[in-house]
């Protein structure tokens, strides 16, 4: 069966150990978590975990059923199955040279990014967008010499309640 990336949103108790339990459901069965984002919800008693994993449909259903069995998991939604928006943010540190400056500026412009800090001959860029946008930005920046980078992983939200 065809595999594709699924984004799951889990509403969980905001308690120690909950993330480990969720991760264990996937890890214990040999499934990789591609991206992961966690923070408290409006109600601080709960957290929202957003994770993506690449699976076929049947496996995905099994994973969802196992996750909702956890006592501390209160809701599981596959955001890939509903109308939703998704974003990822990336921070990239680059060494500036006379040769790459102009290209970097152009890329920032193209991807609606911005310079977060500039320190001597180093700068840190911020780019936000859908995963594909981030991938493209990264591909463009790579040849210009990336020092290091960090990505948030995907956050996503249903368009409507």
């Amino acid at each position: 069966m065809e595999k594709k990336a699924h984004t799951l949103a889990l509403t969980v108790s905001n308690k120690p150990d909950v993330l480990a339990r969720v991760a264990g459901v996937l890890g214990g069965r040999g499934y990789n978590i591609e991206t992961l984002c966690v923070d408290a919800t409006i109600d601080p008693a709960y957290s929202k975990i957003i994770l993506t994993t690449i699976q076929d449909k049947t496996t995905m259903t099994k994973i969802e059923k196992q996750l909702i069995k956890l006592i501390d998991v209160h809701k599981v939604t596959d955001l890939t199955k509903v109308e939703s928006v998704s974003r990822e943010m990336m921070l990239v540190r680059m060494k500036l040279t006379d040769k790459n400056k102009a290209d970097i500026a152009l890329i920032i412009d193209t991807f609606n990014g911005r310079v977060v800090t500039m320190n001597g001959d180093h700068c840190v860029l911020e780019i936000t967008g859908e995963k594909e946008v981030i991938e493209r930005a990264l591909a463009s920046l790579k040849p210009l010499g990336i020092d290091d980078m960090a990505r948030t992983g995907i956050v996503a939200l249903e368009r409507q309640a």
Partner: peptide, 14 residues
């Protein structure tokens, strides 16, 4: 022990 038994309990508490 909570970590050790996480995958083989229905639930556990500290």
């Amino acid at each position: 022990i909570v970590g050790i038994t996480r995958p083989c309990t229905k639930h556990n508490f500290l």
